[in-house]
Design a protein around this nucleic acid. Structure first.
Length: 811
RNA sequence: GCGACCGUGGCGGAAUUGGUAGACGCGCAGGAUUUAGGAUCCUGUACGGUAACGUGUGAGGGUUCGACUCCCUCCGGUCGCACCA
């Protein structure tokens, strides 16, 4: 390096990073005083599943972004707590162990060990004293405790329910594990429906509160929208269509205003009233249709072709508004699981009903008309006014919805109703690798919760944990484990053999982090008060619905039961983006997976961290391209050189340009890191360095300039920053320094470029002092030869002046 | 099908509230240094044109003194939901 002074050592990240890893451990730099922190800041990142493949570059991207945020907050004076843990229970670990012919209990510790080493190399500010793993009995003991709180409160209940069953995994799948009717893990295996007795959490009872709180959360709009959609609130009415013999067919609709256009009724094929409504001559068809529909399972019905099929029952019901007799049909486009399992069909204003009416030649009656558009049917919108609707004609949707509903309600033919799409949370898994559900079944006492002092219910160490298709967990094959006396009456009883859903493990882990030292309580009340709710949560979008919703729900319940004094766990949540390679998602099959270890070894952790953050906006992700990383390394090399050339004991004059750039950079980086715009924060630091280099021309620079650069850089490249900080004469860690301040007045340039437009086109750029008046600006502009030429001697009709930016002359 | 977001050089990507399009970085070209290569440093780099200048943010239209930014139509992509009545 030509401009390196002889005694300067080249930047060798291997040496620097090893030195500071050790120093941080020694000084306990990353540890937090949980009991006494004055300005607590809980910086949470989603804990990973410790896969056998080790840390993925996407993990590193996620954690580094969160770590930078934590380090910035620390420099800004907060007592930052940045814990880490492992979400190690679940189907992933178990399936992998089965494939490798080993036991997950032996696999997980190895994987965790590997993760820990890799994470250490990345240079995260993690307080390892508070590490946790969901598979640790000292953790899942309290997962079971939480289950018991919900059980005792009547929120955990047992129900017989249809579930998604994957014949390959041989277990129940959650809805999100079903992709287009196939298992997410076995893309060629169709998911079946199966009826099982399972434990459910009554999250639907909390739907309204979960929905309502969303508006107060500092989350991104898209995440909030996804949560709203998942909860799926709809306001409508249950209407009563009566048959001549007095039977009552209840239908649910969100458009009671269109009831005058309801020309037939449709029931789901499995509707309990279907058979009773079938007339003798239609019975054979009805039964045949039913059989055909149940052969097509629920999932296939949802994804299969949407050709409308159906069958007439032979019966009629009375439209509660018109009093006319309308036919009752069965069709599989109506789902038993939503609403009442029956609908009133308004073919003129619903596309599905329209298709069905066309296919079976049923009458179509228009009851909404848009005066602005004479639309073809169907016309599903809410614009327009009612027609063919008796005394309601001429009303808008907003008027007619309540008017029609009330009118029917007065005659006991309707009831306004609010419904939610969200289902109760099924937490039973017929699997081995999870926390046993702490329930004991007694013939006399029924389901009894395991007494708190008997927790944890340890997961037995068994070798034959392979699931079978019996519909029960492998634990049900271990009599010596499940046979226990009833805790209430002492009679022979048996344990619940299902384990709980991984989402329950992860629903409360952040509550445990600050309290890991307590073995007699899940979380300490004082500690929790000090640290929770979490200040900022960073994680992947794939968990933006379920994980966040489930943990919000569990916190809400714990709050209601008096265990905690907040009900929303994450005040602020931001989702990071995904790293792709050459425009495609990284995957083993594509062969474009990036191994972070190689890059850290070759370039150093600091370079790798910064490169990942430089790829693109943190919340959008970016495209990983090998070549670009050298630019970051060059930047860090130059920082190293400039700091090592800095005079620490001499007074060095600094140019105004450097000072100005310093203030501009501090402002820009401060704003950018706040909005997680790490890519532009890095380019601002690069610009700062470029200015310093151009101005100083290899001469030593002033100490305070080097210092502010290093502090800004520290969250991104912590090892190098520490080394440079020490070189600048500091004994303490750079992370005990102060985030630099800026002065707006000192960011103002002495000379600005004034753009001169003629008729909106840029024609000239003039160097002027800032703060020019409009008249002065116009004078300067019109005096310019080029500007004169483009004005062509015409008079100015209008001048637009944007202070210190541009003047536009309209001629 | 519905909803959300997005489309900018050879590439990754910049551009507070409409006000200099292409910051920063990669790559590339030329030069310096070097026995050579690499590294490093300097200069240039949207496109066309010797130049004046013209043209440019997926396509087309609109609003405006002025549009990557706002509005309409279309095309393409990513994600979420998906017969939810």
């Amino acid at each position: 390096m030509t401009n390196t002074t002889p005694e300067t050592v080249d930047y060798d990240p291997k040496i620097v990073e090893a030195k500071w890893r050790e120093r941080w451990d020694l000084r306990r730099t990353d540890k937090q005083d949980i009991a006494h922190a004055a300005k607590p800041y809980f910086n949470l990142m989603m804990f990973p599943y410790p896969s056998a493949e080790g840390l993925h570059v996407g993990n590193v991207f996620a954690f580094v972004g969160a770590d930078i945020h934590g380090r910035v907050r620390r420099l800004q004076g907060w007592d930052v707590f940045e814990p880490f843990g492992f979400d190690a229970f679940g189907i992933h670990s178990e399936n992998f162990a089965l494939k490798m012919n080993t036991h997950p209990g032996r696999l997980i510790p190895r994987n965790i060990e590997r993760f820990r080493e890799q994470l250490r190399d990345v240079g995260l500010m993690i307080d390892w004293d508070h590490e946790l793993s969901t598979t640790d009995p000292t953790y899942y003991r309290w997962t079971q405790w939480i289950f018991l709180q919900l059980f005792n409160a009547g929120i955990a209940v047992k129900k017989r329910a249809p579930v998604n069953w994957c014949p390959e995994c041989k277990t129940v799948l959650a809805n999100e594990q079903v992709i287009d009717g196939f298992c997410e893990r076995h893309s060629d295996t169709k998911v079946h429906q199966r009826l099982l007795e399972q434990w459910f959490f009554k999250i639907t009872d909390y739907a309204e509160r979960l929905l309502n709180n969303i508006q107060h959360l500092d989350w991104s709009d898209s995440t909030r929208l996804m949560q709203r959609n998942w909860i799926g609130k709809s306001v409508g009415a249950e209407l009563d269509f009566k048959t001549p013999d007095g039977k009552s067919v209840k239908v649910y609709t969100t458009r009671p205003d269109t009831v005058f256009g309801a020309t037939y009724v449709v029931m789901a094929p499995e509707h309990p009233m279907a058979e009773g409504l079938a007339t003798a001559e239609c019975m054979a068809d009805v039964l045949a249709y039913r059989r055909a529909a149940s052969a097509k399972d629920l999932v296939a019905r949802k994804v299969g072709d949407r050709e409308k099929t159906g069958v007439f029952t032979g019966s009629y019901a009375r439209n509660p508004a018109t009093g006319e007799s309308v036919p009752i049909w069965l069709a599989d486009y109506v789902l038993m699981e939503y609403g009442t399992g029956a609908i009133m069909a308004v073919p003129a204003h619903d596309e599905r009903d329209f298709e069905f009416a066309e296919a079976f030649r049923l009458p179509i009656v228009r009851v909404v008309s848009d005066p602005d558009r004479e639309d073809a049917l169907p016309f599903p919108g809410k614009n327009g006014v009612l027609v063919n609707s008796g005394q309601f004609d001429g009303m808008t949707y907003e008027e007619s919805f309540p008017a029609v509903t009330n009118w029917l309600q007065e005659r006991a033919l309707a009831e306004q109703q609010t419904r939610y799409r969200i289902h109760d949370w099924c937490i039973s898994r017929q699997r081995y690798w999870g926390p046993p559900i702490p329930i004991i079944y007694c013939d006399a006492c029924g389901p009894v919760g395991v007494p708190e002092q008997d927790l944890p219910v340890l997961l037995p160490d068994i070798e034959d944990f392979r699931p079978d298709d019996s519909g029960v967990s492998p634990l049900a094959r271990h009599e010596q484990w499940y046979r226990v006396p009833c805790p209430k009456c002492g009679a022979d009883a048996r344990r619940e053999t299902d384990v709980s859903d991984t989402f329950l493990d992860s629903a409360w882990y952040f509550l445990r982090y600050p309290s890991t030292e307590f073995d007699d309580r899940p979380f300490d009340k004082d500690v929790t008060k000090r640290w929770l709710p979490v200040a900022q949560y960073i994680g992947g979008n794939e968990h933006a619905v379920l994980h966040l919703l489930y943990s919000r729900f569990v916190m809400m319940v714990l709050n209601d039961l008096g265990w905690i004094d907040f009900e929303e766990p994450y005040l602020k949540f931001r989702a990071h983006g995904t790293i792709v390679r050459d425009g495609a998602k990284m995957s083993k099959s594509r062969g474009n997976v990036v191994n972070p270890d190689e890059y850290i070894t070759r370039w150093g952790a600091d370079t790798f961290r910064m490169y990942l953050m430089f790829l693109g906006p943190y919340q959008e992700g970016g495209d990983f391209r090998d070549k670009g990383i050298s630019g970051i390394r060059r930047f860090l090399d130059r920082v190293w050189i400039i700091v090592h050339n800095t005079e620490t004991d001499a007074i060095v004059e600094t140019t105004d340009a450097i000072v100005r750039k310093r203030h501009q950079t501090v402002r820009k980086v401060t704003d950018d890191v706040e909005g997680l715009r790490y890519n532009t924060a890095i380019s601002a630091m690069m610009e700062f360095l470029n200015t310093i280099r151009a101005e100083s021309k290899d001469k030593p620079i002033a100490k305070e300039i080097a210092e502010s650069l290093i502090v800004l850089l520290a969250p991104f490249a912590p090892h190098l920053a520490e080394e440079c900080w020490e070189k600048l004469g500091h004994d303490a860690s750079v992370f005990d320094a102060q985030w630099p301040e800026y002065d707006d007045a000192l960011t103002v340039d002495v000379e600005i470029e004034l753009v001169v437009q003629v008729n909106g086109k840029v024609r000239q750029r003039l160097q002027v002092a800032p703060g020019l008046s409009e008249n002065d600006a116009r004078e300067r502009a019109t005096a310019d030869d080029t500007v004169k030429r483009f004005m062509g001697g015409k008079a100015i009709r209008k001048t637009i002046y944007v202070q210190d930016r541009l003047v536009n002359l309209v001629v």
